[in-house]
Amino acid sequence: MAQSATYYNPPPPQSSSSRFSLPSTTSPSPSSTSSPPPRREVSRTSLPPSGLQNVFTPIPGQGRNVGILDRPLNKTRGGEVSNSAWAFLFAEIISYSQSRVDSVTDLERRLASLGYEAGQRILSLLLLRNTLTTSSKDPKREHRLIPILQFIHTQVYKYVFGKPADGLERSVEGEDEYMLTCNSPPLTQHISIPRDMGQLSCEAFTAGLVEGVLDGLDVPARVTAHTVPTDQYPQRSVILIKLDQKVMDREEILAK
């Protein structure tokens, strides 16, 4: 009992009664020493009845330490991440993944699955923010294919990379293939692929992200990333979207 009491600051006289009632509310004497010590901050404000509750009560919030999870969702200012921080994080993600895969295809699949998770979250966030900023009585979500692709081309790319994609076009080979081009992708701008991994494109992460967004809008597709360099843009990358037959069928019905 004496031990648990030593964690307190010298108590103000009126709180002394609650201090001595502490062990009786939890359990008899021996376990009171093993129970987690109450935090100092708590005694400064007011003394809750039981020692156990002290641990779970949040520390009185100081406005300056608002965690990332406590920030309002529709507040966008100041939420940007520096490109260097991202570059180092992404480099670590890639070398971590690389030590756990056997082939380039597997590595791309791992990156894509990470991007997929990000894409699903980004979609929800963007839709929520759009609803909040426009009139909240009339929330809107695209359901036709072309507006969905344009939504990704402008809004999603602008949110993720700070600028819209450089091009959105339909493939000449098939009706169900669309291409999103980015002349200098910001996520992978510092990465140069070694020769022995020729086919790898770390933009697989972006491909996964796009796939996540499309899936969230009920447009299942197979999305892959390819590096298609030009003289002017040596890092130009193309995100190839091959839509599921289901989507094409639905579009046909909706067009009538």
Binding site: A87, F90, A91, E92, I94, Q98, H190, I191, I193, P234
Partner: peptide, 23 residues
Amino acid sequence: SDAVMKNPFQTLEMPINSSLFES
């Protein structure tokens, strides 16, 4: 620091093999 240190395929203290750095 951009082209070498942020490249995941670069091993520290090893010869630099980055086309981006060279260009």
